[in-house]
Design a protein around this nucleic acid. Structure first.
Lengths: 169, 169
DNA sequence: CTAGAATTGTTGCCATGAGCAACCCAATCG
DNA sequence: CGATTGGGTTGCTCATGGCAACAATTCTAG
């Protein structure tokens, strides 16, 4: 229990403000992270009853970036090719995406949303945004903007390597 | 941070600063979320081989809140009892936590860190904090504090129900 | 032109982790 | 007492992601 440098929960007491702020940020990150995880299920289920959270993420990226190759998709969400391959196969079986051979490269394939996929995503994302907006509506836009800016900064810092998330709820 | 996806009721949403800020926040949440997930393994493994990500989270809560019952622990991190039960069993086998019968309630058990668990956590959290601090060191404390505050507000809003996370990278 | 990289995507196998349901055991209520 | 509730555990299953091995194709020497 000797505590030269205090841990997050170990009320350090009179620490410097940076230390305290760090602790607070860490804590909020973990709460946010955990909450998001526990809810992603329900969100993806709206697109399709059988759809899992991971697949939703893919659809979202595809929708945003347009036709994309599998490898690119994988790297863009930081996940291995095998996972993406399987997810895409699944989504294809649901008729939400389609794979087209790239005429320039016989190996590659272009993945895109089907009209049905587009429609589904449109519905779901709209609904989600509706709730989101509804709840955050009372926030002053400046604050929201500040939040976004700081989060971007936070994200930028951890661009490639480890994220020292606390995991604590 | 312009997002081509507009909300249904967002008549002229592109010009609405709130709308823009919302979009930005959403996006940052998803980036943060994804980043944290993709890295949590490597991080906890890196600090200690036999400490799994999930277990680390539990230890962290226990350390913060002191002796706690399993059910309470489970609900505090938003996960089912079975998962926690197994994790705790694992941690016990590592000698990091101990289960004691609650004298007041024979069914319940009080879970606490063993001295060794405390020591481990101390090491691990120190290491994590080191990295964290290192990278955020240049951030003005006020900004960090603001970030923490806003994130707390954000988290509070979605206390119980769906979190409209976008999942997009 | 052809043999050997390199790359795209798929599949096999495995590990982690979470949920559901069924189950014990203690406590409490009638 | 017996019945019901509540805390924890275990069995089963599934989702997900990683690594490795593979197939098919393109690129790069020589």
């Amino acid at each position: 229990m000797s505590n030269p440098i205090e841990g997050p929960g170990a009320s350090g007491g009179a620490e410097d403000p940076t230390e305290a702020a760090l602790t607070a940020v860490e804590h909020q990150i973990s709460v946010l992270w955990r909450r998001g995880r526990s809810v992603s299920h329900q969100l993806s289920r709206q697109v399709h009853p059988d759809m899992e959270p991971a697949a939703y993420g893919l659809l979202s990226v595809i929708r945003r970036q347009g036709p994309i190759r599998l490898t690119e998709l994988a790297s863009s969400i930081g996940v291995g090719k095998p996972s993406v391959s399987r997810q895409i196969a699944f989504l294809e079986s649901l008729g939400l995406v389609s794979k087209e051979a790239d005429p320039l490269d016989g190996r590659a394939q272009s993945i895109r949303l089907t009209p049905r996929g587009e429609e589904k995503m449109h519905q779901v994302q709209d609904a989600r945004r509706e709730v989101f907006r509804e709840r955050l509506a009372e926030w002053p836009p400046e604050e929201l903007q500040t939040l976004a800016t700081y989060m971007a900064k936070l994200n930028a810092i951890y661009e490639r390597d480890g994220f020292p998330k606390d995991e604590t709820a």
